[in-house]
């Protein structure tokens, strides 16, 4: 079953007098519960595609729908709520909030969703245990290693139990051993969860090899 569908999307950025086409009439569907790796050279349009799929940006033309709901034309406020409820994000640079400790970072999306404090605490403690940081909950990002920060980021992305998880080069800043650990962690929640879809961008073919589906992009188009 297709959970996320991009239909004929294009993204054109103005560049001085001219313009740059980052995505060119691209259509792609993502199956529920599957891992999809998007690969391609730098500047091919991978990140632009992820921005559009995740609702960070809007396509110049075409549409993106999640579970049959078109998110392209949603007002910004509704789109923010939609992201909070259905999507999770993991970034290459972890992007933790520096003034919050590990547990508070994990609880951030839950507090945005107005989940009561007690429930937030129990969810975040449980997830941090699952990612192996049960004893590092009060540590701030600058007190954690890169691998640990990415584990916190994964915990944060999973906190709201999203149906789609987006990961942009999740192991890009990590050494091989740590990267492997992170990758296992990322793919692990998929087991037993038929509905969670993981869409990850990577340069690393070893990472891509763990996916159910590999999508190659070049010059803003899908490669045959």
């Amino acid at each position: 079953m297709i959970i996320l569908q991009a239909t004929d999307i294009s993204k054109v950025y103005p560049s001085g007098e001219s313009s740059v086409t980052a995505l060119n009439h691209l259509s792609i569907g993502f199956e529920a519960g599957k891992i999809t790796a998007i690969v391609g050279p730098s500047g091919s349009g991978k990140s632009t595609l992820l921005n559009l799929l995740a609702g960070f940006d809007r396509p110049s033309s075409g549409s993106v729908s999640h579970q049959g709901i078109d998110i392209t034309g949603m007002p910004e406020t509704n789109l923010a709520s939609y992201r909070l409820a259905h999507f999770g994000f993991i970034f290459q640079n972890y992007n933790l909030v520096s003034i919050l400790n590990a547990q508070e970072n994990v609880e951030l999306p839950l507090s945005l969703a107005s989940v009561p404090k007690a429930k937030r605490n129990s969810i975040s403690s449980e997830i941090l245990k699952r990612v192996g940081l049960g004893k590092r909950t009060t540590h701030y990002p600058n007190q954690l290693s890169g691998g640990e920060q990415q584990r916190v980021a994964i915990a944060r992305a999973l906190a709201t139990n999203p149906s789609v998880l987006f990961a942009d080069e999740p192991t890009g800043n990590l050494d091989t051993t740590t990267g492997t650990g992170i990758l296992e962690l990322l793919t692990e929640p998929m087991e037993g969860s038929q509905n969670r879809t993981l869409i990850l961008i990577t340069h690393d073919m070893e990472v891509a090899a763990r996916a159910n589906q590999i999508v190659r992009i070049r010059d803003g188009k899908l490669e045959a």
Binding site: A54, F56, E76, T77, A80, S81, R83, L84, A85, F87, F89, F91, N95, L96, V97, L108, P109, L112, A113, R156, T160
Partner: peptide, 10 residues
């Protein structure tokens, strides 16, 4: 980041 994970502009 806060906006990306679901905070409204308001």
């Amino acid at each position: 980041v806060i906006r990306a994970i679901g905070a409204k502009p308001s």
